[in-house]
Structures are given as C-alpha cells and as structure tokens.
Amino acid sequence: MCMTIPSRVLSVDGELATVECFGVQRDVSTILLSESLAIGDYVTVMANAFVLEKIPADVALESLAYLSSVLAEPESDSVR
C-alpha cells in the first residue's frame, strides 16, 4: 500500500499536465479527472502517470510538511 504524496501542477495542455513533487517533474494524463485543472492546483498521481484527484491546497501543504518531516529522518527503519 502506498503513501499519497501531493504534486503541484506546473502546466496544463489539454488532457496532459506537468506536475512537480519534491523537486521531481513528471508529465501526467488528466483523462481520469472529472474536473478541470489550473496551474498551482495540487493533485494525487497514480502510477506516476495519471492524475486521480484534485486536493485542496491547505490539505496538500499540510501533508507535504508532515511528509517532509517524516522523510527527512534517517532510514533507520529500512529492513532486509
């Protein structure tokens, strides 16, 4: 099961968008989305390729802040 990391929309071109998350940019399809997207929106992305849903900016920013603090910790919990 995977964590959901919000991505910010950088550009929109028809049913394609470029999004950014933790400094990594991706081109994704918006074909599964029922609503329109604008630059600056926050979205969740499935399989690095498809936008699943738009999420409110305040929720996205709160999630990103929380995730940043968690992911900044050393990977002491990595297991083999």
Binding site: C2, T4, T44, M46, E53, S69
Partner: peptide
Amino acid sequence: HLIGMEPSEALRQITKLFSI
C-alpha cells in the same frame, strides 16, 4: 509520528497520507 495526537487528529493524518 501520531503519538501524542488526539485520536480524531491521528485519523485525519492517516487518511491524508494514504488518500488513495
């Protein structure tokens, strides 16, 4: 990281982190 939160706040964090 949920330690110290009230249960309702912990649930809110969980559903945000795993929104899919």
